[in-house]
Write a protein that binds this DNA or RNA. Structure first.
Length: 104
DNA sequence: CCATTGACGAAGA
DNA sequence: TTCTTCGCCAATG
């Protein structure tokens, strides 16, 4: 499983929706590789909607790591996503489930 | 080859 | 509910 697979899925996430690292790993048939997905995202090439990837709790994992800080949240809010008082979004509301690419 | 780390996550305490 | 531990994958020293 190459990072290309990860990027391919991320690119399919529609505007205003999100996916978690573990969810993406699951679609690559490797539900235990959430961390590897995170690694891939950290090195994601430009041009992909990286901000639509959040952790399983609906929280932002890049809060203090972007320039400027909280950039991811700003981008998501710009797509209409609302955050609660804990700085988290509702996964049940915004989670996106791509079609299973039948590529075993 | 082994140890450590990291945009993760589920299970325990 | 919050904090800690452990497992997993890929990359690095």
């Amino acid at each position: 499983m190459g990072f290309e697979d990860v990027y391919a899925i991320v690119c399919k996430i529609p505007r205003g929706r999100v996916m978690s690292y573990g969810q993406i790993a699951g679609h690559l048939r490797q539900p235990l590789s959430a961390r590897a997905v995170g690694w891939a995202m950290q090195r994601c090439p430009k041009g992909i909607p990286w901000h639509r990837v959040v952790n399983a709790e609906g929280g932002i994992s890049t809060e203090m790591l972007t320039d400027p800080p909280r950039l991811q949240r700003l981008l998501l809010e710009g797509e209409g996503i609302r955050f609660d008082g804990s700085g988290k979004l509702s996964m049940s509301t915004y989670r996106w489930t791509p079609k299973k690419t039948k590529k075993k």
